[in-house]
Structure formats: C-alpha cells, structure tokens
Design a binder for these strands. Sequence first.
RNA 1: GCGGGGGUGCCGGAGUGGUCAAACGGGUACGGUUGAGGGCCGUAUGGCUUAGUGUCUGCGCGGGUUCAAACCCCGUCCCCCGCACCA
Length: 901
Amino acid sequence: MTGQTSFSEIEKRWQKKWADEQVFKTSSDPDRPKFYCLEMYPYPSGKLHMGHLRNYSIGDSFARYKRMRGFNVLYPMGYDAFGLPAENAAIKHKTHPEEWTRRCIADMKAQQSALGISYDWDRQVQSIDPEYYRWNQWIFLKMLEKGLAYKKAAPINWCPDCNTVLANEQVEDGKCWRCKHVVEEKNLEQWFFKVTAYADRLLEGLEHLEHWPEQVKVMQSNWIGKSYGTIIDFDVVDESGKKIDTISTFTTRPDTAYGITYLVLAAEHPKVLEWTGGTKYAEPVKSFISEVKKQTIIERTSETKEKNGEFLGVYFVNPVNGEKCPLWVGDYVLMNYGTGAVMAVPAHDQRDFEFAKRYGLPLKVVINPKDGHELNPDKMARAFCDEGVMANSGDFNGSESRDAIEEISKFLESKDWGKRTVNYRLRDWLISRQRYWGTPIPIIYCEKCGIVPVPYDQLPVTLPKDVEFTGEGNPLAKSESFTKTTCPKCSAPARRETDTMDTFMDSSWYFFRYLSPKMDSLPFDKKDSDYWMPVDQYIGGIEHAILHLLYARFLTKVLKDLGLTDVDEPFHSLLCQGMVTKDGAKMSKSIGNVVDPAEIMDRYGADTARIFMLFSALPEKELEWSDKGVQGAFRFRNRVWRLVDEAPETEAREHNNSDRQMISRMNRTIASVTGLLEDIRPSLAIGALMEFVNAIYKYREAKVHVDVHAELLENLALLLAPFSPHLSEEMWERLGKDGFISLAKWPESDEGRIDPEAEASDELVSSTASDICRVLELAKLDKPSKVRLFISDAWKYDFVRQLKQELEKTRDVGSILKSIMSTGLKVYGQEISKLVPKLAADACKMPAVVMDQDKEVAVLEENRATLEKQFGCPVELVRAQEAKEPKARQAMPGKPAILVE
RNA sequence: GCGGGGGUGCCGGAGUGGUCAAACGGGUACGGUUGAGGGCCGUAUGGCUUAGUGUCUGCGCGGGUUCAAACCCCGUCCCCCGCACCA
C-alpha cells in the first residue's frame, strides 16, 4: 500500500524543495545551447481544466528532457489576465475586476504548482500589471508613428452581448467567438492595426515554418486569402448611352470578360443610392437595401439562400466588346471584398448563373469544354466553371482559357481598361474595445490639436479605480478622473480615449517579455532576444490557429521593424495538442462530461495524471478520457514505486546471462526512449518504459545482481523524470544519488551493449530452465535423465512443420502432455505447448526447448552448466535441420529473408 | 464546394514495403495470492475446428504494382476539423 499512500507527501516534498532551492531558475548564458519551451499562457479562470493539464504535461516533458540533455531551458508561465469574464464577474458580484482576477491567478498558480511543472516562476508575467501593459501602450505609440496604427470609421462587428466591437478574426460563423451571440454590423470610428501591410510577409513566412502543423499553415494562408486578379473599369451610362460615371470590379477570371451580361454592386456600395437618387428606381432599391440590412450576417451568408437583387436603371459598357449591359444591386456581393462590385458572367460562374436565371438575365457562353462540344446557353443546367477553349471572344477565340487569363489582362492593361492586381481577404485588425478591463489606448483628444498621442514619459496610462461596474456602457467613459486631462501639446483641457485594446494585443508579444520581465526601459532586452528567441517549442490548442498565432507573428515582425529584435518568426516549432474528450465529445459544462483535474490529482497524484495525459494519445491527437486509463497509469506508477520500495533478492556474482540481457535491454530502452522523445512521441516512450519495467520484474524473479539492479533502477528513474518527476526524485534519493534528478544528466545508451539476439536467447535460457522445472513439477515427472535443447536457425514455421511430421508418427502423447499444455508456457512468443509435444513424444518423454538462433550456441554452451545443475542431468544440444533458402533471399539480396509459404 | 487529417482487435492506440499484423495500456474471462474486497501475480481474448492441431479470414470497400502491401498507385465510400455567396 505504500505506493498509494505516499504519492501526496512525495509530491509536496519535492515541489517544496524545487521551489526552496530555485532549481528551475534560468538566466541567459551565451556559452550554453538554449531551449525556449513555451505553453500558450492561460486566461486565469481560476481553475485548471483537462486541456491545461494536458498542455502542461506535454510542455514540462519537453522542458525537463531538454534540461537533462544539457540545454539552458527557459520555461516560463504567465497569465493573459485582461478580458471580459473578469468584468462580468465584477458586475455580478459588485467587486473590482482586479480583485477577481488576482484571486483567480493565485488559485490557478496553486494548481499549477501542485502539478510540479518546472517553471521558472521568477519570470511570471501578467498582462494586467501596469508594468506589462505600459509596453502595449509603448508599442501602440511606435506603431502609430509608423502609420501601422490608425483610426477610421468603418463598418464593424458589434457584439450586443459583450457590448463591444470585435475583430474579423473574432467572428465565427457570424457569432461572437466568446459568447456566441449573433454579431451585428455597426458603423463606428475605431482604432486599427495595419495587418494588411504585412499580408505578404505573413504569407511568405509560412513557407519557412517547417515545424508547424500543415493544418495551421493552411488555415492562416486561407485567412490571408491572397488572390491574383484583374481590376476592370467600366463606363457607366444612362438609358441613352451617355456616360455618367465609372465603376471598377475585381475578377480572378478576366478570361470570361466577353461573357459579361450584367454587373452587380453590393447593397452597401455608395454608388447604388447615388445613381438611383431621384429616379423611379430609388424606392425599390431603398427598400431592397433595408431588407438586406435586416438580415443577420448568418442569414446573408447562408449558402442555400436565394440570391436577390434590383435593377438600378443604369447601364455600363463592356470595354472589350462595346456591349451595353444593365447594372444591378445584389445581396450576394460583399462590400468588404474586392471593390464591392462584381462583373457577372452567368455562363461561367454558378452564383451569377443562379442570379441570372432568377431575374431573366441573358447568358453568354465564351468558353467551351475541351471535349469539343459547344455549350448551349439556353440548355445549361449550371454554370461551366472549368477551363476550356475560348469562344465569342473576338481575337481570343480558340485560345486555351488558361492562357487567355494572361492575354486578356495584358490586352486590358494596354488599352488602359484594367489593371492586374493582388487582392487579400485579410482585413486590418480592429483593436478598440469599449470595455474597462484592458489596456487603455494612450491617446488624448484635444479640441485644438486633434488626436494627440500620450508622450512616452507619461506611460503607463493606468486604469482608474473609481469606477462602477453596472453593465451598461463603458465604465471608463464615466470615470472623470480618467477622461479629464490636458493636452500634452497645448495644455488645454482635453479628454482621454476610453477604448481599451483587444486582449489579443497582450498575448501577441508576451513571449518577449518573459525574456526580460523586469526591464523598465524597453519592453525587453535585445540581448536576451538574441539569445533566447525564437521559441523553440510552442504548445497550445488548435483553436488559436488563426487569431493568436497570426497576431503574434504580425507583432513579431513589427517589433523586428522597430529594431527591437532580429527574429522574424517567433515560434520555431509548433505543437497543437488535441482536444481532451469524454464519451466522444469535447468536455463541456453543457454536455456535463467535464472531469476536474483537481479531483484526479487528489486521488492519484500529479505524476499519475501526467503519465496518463502523455501515454494515452500522441500530443497532437484527440485524447479520450478514460477513468480506467488513469487507473492503469496509477498502477504503472505504483509498479515503478514498488521496484524501489521492495528490495529484490540479491547475489554477488559474475554477470550471468540474465544480467547481460537486462543490460542490453536497458541500453535499448535508453536509446528508444531518447529517440521517441526527440520525435515528440512521449506516449510511445512511456510504452517502452512500461515494457522495461515489466522486464525488470521478470529479472527480479530470480536473484539479481546488485550493481546491475541498481543501474537499472537508476536509469529507469532518469528516463521517467520528464514524465513523473516527483517519483523520479524520490527514487533518486532512495538510490543514494546526490542532487536533483531534475538536473541530472540524461543517460546515454551504450550501443555496444545492445545485443538483441543475446537478449532474446538469454531470456529463453534463463526463463526456460525454471519453466521446465515447473512443467516437470506440474506434470509430476520424475527427474529426467537428459534434456535436449533444440537449436534452429530455421524459421519457426519450418520447425513447427517438422514437429508436425514427427508427431504424425508418434501419436501417443498422453496425459502428461495435457498437463504441460495447460501451463501454456511461452517461449519466444510461441507457446511451448505447440512445440513440446513432438519432443516429449520423442521417446524420452522429456520437455524440450526450441532455440531460434544458431549463433547462440555459444551462449547455450555457457549456460549448459547452469541448466544441468537445475535439471540434475546432462543437457544435450541438438541442431535442427537447416531451413530451405527462401526464394525471397535470392530475389532481393541484402534484404532480410522472409518466409514464403 | 475548397483545404487539412483520418478509417487497424471489445476499446484507446502502435506499426507506413520485408524476421507469423496488432507494441503498450485498458476492458473481459479464468486461475493464483488474500479472511472478504481491493491490490498484486499469471494465462487467455478474429472466426471455425482439435487431445495436440489445423484451417479460413483479416488493417473501410474495389482494383493495380511487387517475390513481398495495413503501408505504394488508381478508383470508391465513410468520419472528423477548418474555411466558405471571396467574384
């Protein structure tokens, strides 16, 4: 029972020692190789969930492993502590968000400490400290100077539940990413960061991120959404053909330019009202627009929805062929992509096709399929969107449509009718939030001087305390002590900006602050950045694939451009851990399948929880929670513990076969665990350790060699240290080792001592001797007069076949055999019961053993004395017939031969 | 629709051309130990069949390449994730 009762004390004891002796404190050391291990810093909700537990178990296994491999490991922790939940809690409980947040941080930290994660707590960073957010403000001002931060009125996403605007990236499926409330569109004046200026660099950078999951790169690339196309300008004319205006459209298919039969503008397009104003079309168009605006974003973007529109009463001239076609407004055109106007080619675009069919607009085929048949516009059931051969396109007839994209673009450019261009889906990052609990945007509004940045020496602009949290409006706006100020330029009374920054700003550069957490002249020290950056291993959930990871990459590039760092990409290797699920679904309160990590840690301890987390699935895969699985991890943990807690019988002796076998086994385990950790496969590493533990138990069935046994345990403790550090420390101490195992050197495998063949045959010899004794005992046989060991380098199948033939001759095996069978002893993966019959029947009524490797004769010879002693009779070595050379060996020389049946 | 990832035993999952597919763990069954339980130890666990054994099947499905395929190629079905009226 020792194992079960002691884990709690053991874990507490070592956590205290680690803290007291500052075992995990790090500092820059240019003479040593570094490893920066980082987990996405959490929002302090106060309680760990399984996702955290998994995240930290993975991260700590890296950090500890690298530390033992001699790296100078930076492994910090902090808290992404600004944000709405704290403010909502404050409203509900009539307290201050800071109070709530600080308490949550303390609770969370306590739980993290109880997990025994090897963080350097001296570097703790939290975004709510003015010493942190002043640098948000500092960076903001720098960006303002560079024109990367700007204010403009724009249609923005408004979450009525959170009472604030949201960035594009924070709208998922037309809903708020946090509260899932349907987002509304509003037109407000807001602060933006110019991410679009970095679109190309952000896209291009992805190509060099070799150690990022493909999925994340693809998601970011799609989000940036770079597409090459052509802007085509059209003259807008009235009924009589008189030019009244121009309009531009963006297209990726200029090859279809001759097939344009109408043009559609987005409902928000300003020209729509301009052109229809005062005409008979004004009323229907206005009511159409208001209909569109009534719809939610979800309704508008629903794929199945019918496309609606109205004719605008004006026309345009297609420059390529001089055709005059109508202009429409339609709800399927988006204002915020391209130019907000689309050239419609219903024969070759499915959306245009549907719209044209609905309103009886004509189709014009300009591309025919390559198979030679000509499309009939009246009979098409859907648009033809593939590549093909040009038709009805003037000089371009007969060209491949793929080539025509280029040719027509050049033609348009040459006539000054259009221009090739690049378009992005990415929008600028809207960073204003109308909430209290965030970084105040360091701006002052002066009636005379306009928008005035807060001077650097007045940073930080701190959050006022005299604030009431009522839930209505932005509390900052009601704090006179905050809003009332003077203009830094003219000293006239002025007013502060009351918007705060998106909390994603905090998390976009925090990993730099860890490097120099106490620096007060700059956000961080470039020297530290030169040494530590980039982060070598970043670990977090896939849910941040776009939001956080894109912003962090953006900010890093900005910081680089500001000369603060030389790194261009912050995260060298990214691991997106899989979800923790239960009963096939993500753990969530609404489903009611949540398991609290605290409970598991109380019952089984941190080591067990961590082993389970790492063993049960590869880090990037989904992990299905299993109570039984945790118990399995617990059993393993206790099985290891018993190895040190219960001493085996020892013997002073020369190394025998089982000693050599274990030494080989040990070295093989070291090699494989090391390799698996390098490959980020902790689950398999733990599997290998489980096998190793099983082997040690087997070894301990007989008397063990003291030194070998000690070495086995020592290495076991070392290999387990990244996974179950408390247990390892305790083992280390019990084994009489000095210092912390956390700082010990990772074992190296001695390849020369790995000998799989010897290992296999040794196992056979050592276990077989006792096995046969037991068989004899069970079978109530008299002492045999002789034991035969069969040696064969034949494939076992061949050997079994021989046995079978022999058996056909000798049928009388008798009840003795039955007894032997019933023991089901295993030899080399093969049931002894399958092999023994023939031998036993072979007149001498003796059990025997089959060996697999001819080469092991020497080993057997060596062990013959032992065996003879055990059996009390002579042992004879018998060589089995050579196997036939398999065909395969001739076919593929150099490769191992296999059995061809 | 586009993009990414997957389909292996009762379950979680190993194995991505070659030494009898299923390591490791879990579940289940039986046996041992134990006052009982738990724990621990051992054995079994694709189908059919045997006293031993044999035999068939088998890595979503169908083809193909190869002396050899879960693995490579082609086709097909299904599942998960992300994006989506992006012109």
